[in-house]
Write a protein that binds this DNA or RNA. Structure first.
Lengths: 414, 414
DNA sequence: TGGGTTGAATCACGCCTTGAAATAAGTCCG
DNA sequence: CGGACTTATTTCAAGGCGTGATTCAACCCA
């Protein structure tokens, strides 16, 4: 079962609606002719399906192209104000809730701080509730309907079938977040790991745009990766794929906070980089920095000192080797380095990272891969979260998801 | 474009034929009722489509189930003698050609040795030609048609659109193997990497059976892996994914024959294991063994000696760490360790490998993964190669592939 | 032998995509 | 300014498909 999305003649229409909707969504305004030529659908069908979509208010005309001797082509685009969607980022220090239109342009936003040092699931749920009320305050009853709520959380999310969150760092153990949120909203919920949503944001709007096999490496205090294969996030059998940070790059090496040894994170995670630096020099500017972000910035400001130089070069080498592993295993078109620390470090170290990756990767796949920094910055989690309902919307050919079936993906596995 | 396999109402039928055919092929004899209940197709459609398949000679009745008070269910199965298929294994020392029926039971086989030390593409092509003539000698003109030829080769295979082979070890550089074979056969050709075909054999008939996300690790003289995601082999953007052997497990570590340092292959490949042993002890039984296989066997026979024990334990640790990396990145249901050296080493080292993998992998994904040895032995490459045409056949709902479109897979990429 | 039960085939219906033909909306040129 | 031409879009009839309801088939049990 599962897998199969087409059985009746009616699914055919849904599939073709989805196809055209996707083209228009990602391909900007296009004429019917463009659609005819790039989809191998017949002109009759394109015309027919588009008429449907226009009638449903999902597609609107957007001017016309200069005539080239005949009837001019009319441009079409997705009606971005037809629907709104909510994105939520559950971070370590705050919950952020944003409202978007269908194009994922921000319409409203609010930040709700969490008490420092640990937070419980009910606290998070309460913040989400408040945030929702805030951003939805201006929504008119007759206005655009809400497509759903996408939520990026730290930790592994399992859908079985309700989303349950396992967070190693925050001590969440099988938190039934979906059920908890269900108590105050009937909107479709799409809950996924924050790294995945962040990666999806880079894929849709950032450095991964236009590629289909890409790994978004996320370097923050910890290290993760979002692997996109064949255009959609790869989750593995139980949604915990992409744990790049805990792959071993040094058998028997440095102790990692996960308990293992030689993990990549123990060399390139911001926490580790700072710790390694402070092991060699006692630099007050770094040691006494108010938070990790400023500590790393302070370290980078010292980049000319021998101690900093050594640690940073070693960091670049390890990032490069880790990237090489991704290249060898996934053979992606692009590697996007993101996360706040990744962006901070990458700014100066990218050439060295590329160089090391070239040394450690096989020649052929390396030559097929572009290594770049992320475009979006770390606040893209909310936007990425909002892509989840939109993706489902596009997959369904523009029919709104029913609450009971709302899940981020056709979860792999049997 | 690409991706899309359903547009017209006719593709629907093909898709449903494919669905039922697949169930019957992998699920053994099944009744129409079984199909109705497991596919969510209507009874009418199952009946109708099956009638089609029976008329085409692809499905036959296979007895009936005991009645339970009403009309008994008739069992159906794929008619394994309806079509034949050829599998070819291009190895380092010989070309093996085998003829199979649709169930991939061997009907004929032949081995054609290659001159030791390097072989050219024309030589290989000539062997394949001879082998084909041999195994097809007994085929009657009116008998089962040939579905095609599946070929497993060493090296990276690119389809662009004709299969071109890049072999790092044998010096093949962009060899247009498909075009060369096309000169003496019109049969559909399906060329892919031998590790991939081997992995597919384990997936269809061996230790990977029934799973959808599995990594088949192949340890021979060199080291590779065949990654299966969502039920089909993952190839990456240019078909060179799964280069597990050259992932770095020791930054700045042992020199590898690929030119890099600290590659997994430099620790666990048979060649490296033997070399590392001989670096510590000069053991004539190992040093003077006629080939690598007997050398490794000789080393294993010495497993009680301190020197061998040290090397073997270190090998197990590195295999375990490598496996842990696969688990962390892919979160598979199973890891299957195969390849001749993998089977040889695994026989004794599997407990230690599992133990190390547990240490190095994250707890959650590790607990979801079963680590086993391969079931099939190293000669499964031909059978795996033969799965390629069969897979295409099943995907096409039982219509024979046309020559010009014969390619192993819906190649990833845009 | 005949009622009961379950499996399989048939049929009318509604929906789908398609190629061909018709229509719409421009340009070009005299 | 108007007719010929060109290109885009829509309309239409035809051919297919899966489905639910109905009918037919095959077996059990008494």
């Amino acid at each position: 079962m599962a897998e199969r999305n087409l059985q009746t003649v009616r699914d055919l229409r849904r599939s073709n609606r989805s196809l055209l909707l996707r083209r228009l969504y990602f391909g900007g305004p296009l004429s019917r002719q463009d659609l005819i030529h790039t989809t191998s659908l017949s002109a009759a069908s394109v015309s027919n399906v588009i008429a449907d979509l226009i009638e449903d208010g999902l597609v609107v005309e957007a001017g016309a192209l200069e005539s080239e001797g005949g009837r001019p082509r009319i441009l079409l685009r997705v009606n971005s104000s037809a629907l709104h969607v909510v994105g939520v980022d559950v971070g370590e220090t705050r919950v952020r809730v944003e409202l978007f239109d269908l194009d994922l342009e921000q319409l409203a936003a609010t930040d709700l701080p969490l008490d420092a040092g640990g937070f419980t699931a009910p606290e998070v749920a309460a913040r989400i509730r408040t945030g929702l009320e805030t951003v939805l305050a201006d929504e008119r009853p007759g206005g655009p309907a809400l497509l759903g709520i996408g939520i990026g959380v730290p930790g592994v999310v399992q859908h079985s079938p309700d989303a349950v969150v396992h967070g190693q760092t925050n001590g969440w153990d099988a938190v039934p977040l979906e059920r908890m949120l269900r108590e105050f909203t009937d909107l479709p919920l799409f809950i996924d790991n924050g790294a995945v949503t962040m990666g999806q944001a880079e894929m849709w709007f950032g450095a991964g745009r236009g590629s289909r096999n890409t790994v978004v490496a996320l370097i923050g205090s910890g290290v993760g990766a979002s692997v996109v294969t064949a255009g959609s996030p790869y989750r593995g059998s139980t949604s915990s794929a992409g744990e790049w940070g805990h792959t071993t790059v040094q058998v028997g090496g440095r102790r990692c906070r996960c308990g293992s040894r030689g993990c990549l994170e123990a060399y390139i995670g911001a926490e580790s980089v700072i710790a390694r630096y402070l092991e060699t020099v006692d630099d007050p500017a770094v040691r006494d920095a108010p938070d990790e972000e400023s500590a790393l910035a302070a370290l980078l400001a010292r980049a000319d000192s021998p101690a900093a130089r050594t640690v940073l070069d070693d960091t670049a080498v390890h990032i490069g080797a880790g990237v090489a592993n991704l290249i060898n295993l996934f053979n992606p078109e692009r590697i996007v380095i993101g996360g706040w620390a990744g962006l901070l470090l990458g700014a100066g170290l990218l050439p060295r990272i590329r160089e090391t990756a070239r040394e450690y990767a096989l020649h052929h796949p390396f030559s097929q891969t572009r290594i770049t920094l992320g475009d979006l910055g770390p606040d893209a989690v909310t936007r990425g979260a909002a892509t989840l309902p939109v993706d489902r919307f596009l997959a369904a050919g523009g029919s709104r998801p029913r609450v009971e079936t709302a899940q981020p993906a056709p979860a792999a596995g049997r």
